[in-house]
């Protein structure tokens, strides 16, 4: 773990004791107990992107940008996030913030998963794919991501490149906020963007070279 020169003293990060604590002042991963982040931190390690963990509001100030990870049930994830007390601070963030998968869904207004009200950073809703004969749910595998706007997040990534998805719930397409779309029984938001807030439904840490490019792009936004 190169560059580990932080004077990170935080009174322990008990559940993170196997994770590398790299230079603070860079990318903060918001921890709220939803999902495993070993694959994400491994991808950041491979890319040489320094990161640390955000558990409290005080931690936020140490970083220049943030990732909200997330796997699992959106309603349950929102409950856990609320328990951290970080919600008002997250909504007020002015630095680049990237939600991944359920982490992105948390930034919308509402999810059908758990009938839950969410952060409402984006007014879009998160809905369940309808069961149908031709489209299996969860949507699993590599699908095309069609860029709808110019944005440095997708620098160096060809339009319609494949990314790796695993999800049963999707964010509605919205001309204002959809940065990239994917078609799976209907066009939906594969990526969203508003001011400093970004989200991706796919897993960049599992999406080959282009996924790594996207993470590297975010580290420079």
């Amino acid at each position: 773990m190169e560059g580990n020169d932080t004077k990170d003293n935080t009174q322990a990060l008990p559940q993170d004791n196997e994770l590398p604590l790299q230079g603070a002042g860079e990318l903060g991963i918001i921890r709220y107990g939803a999902g495993n982040i070993f694959s994400l931190t491994s991808a950041l390690d491979r890319l040489g992107i320094a990161y640390g963990m955000v558990h409290t509001e005080e931690d936020l100030a140490r970083f220049d940008r943030y990732i909200i990870p997330g796997v699992g049930h959106a309603g349950a994830a929102m409950n856990k996030l609320e328990q951290t007390g970080l919600v008002p601070a997250i909504k007020a963030l002015k630095k680049p913030t990237l939600g991944i998968c359920v982490g992105m869904q948390l930034m919308t207004a509402y999810s059908e998963e758990g009938d839950a009200n969410l952060l409402n950073i984006f007014p879009n809703k998160t809905l369940r794919f309808k069961d149908s004969e031709h489209y299996k749910v969860p949507h699993t595998g590599w699908n095309r991501v069609s860029q709808q706007k110019e944005n440095p997040l997708f620098n160096g990534i060809p339009n319609d490149a494949h990314f790796y998805f695993v999800h049963s719930y999707y964010i509605e397409y919205n001309e204002l906020y959809t940065l990239a779309s994917t078609n799976y029984s209907l066009p939906y938001s594969a990526s969203i963007w508003h001011n400093n807030f970004y989200g991706v439904q796919f897993h960049p840490e599992k999406s080959g070279v282009y996924g790594e490019t996207l993470l590297a792009n975010f580290s420079k936004i």
Binding site: W142, N143, Y173, N183
Partner: peptide
């Protein structure tokens, strides 16, 4: 919404790839 249509894809409406 015209810009969304990927009419060249073999499976209409989805570019979900077969996995190897």
């Amino acid at each position: 919404m015209e810009q969304l249509h990927n009419t060249t894809l073999p499976f209409p409406g989805s570019g979900l790839a077969k996995r190897i």
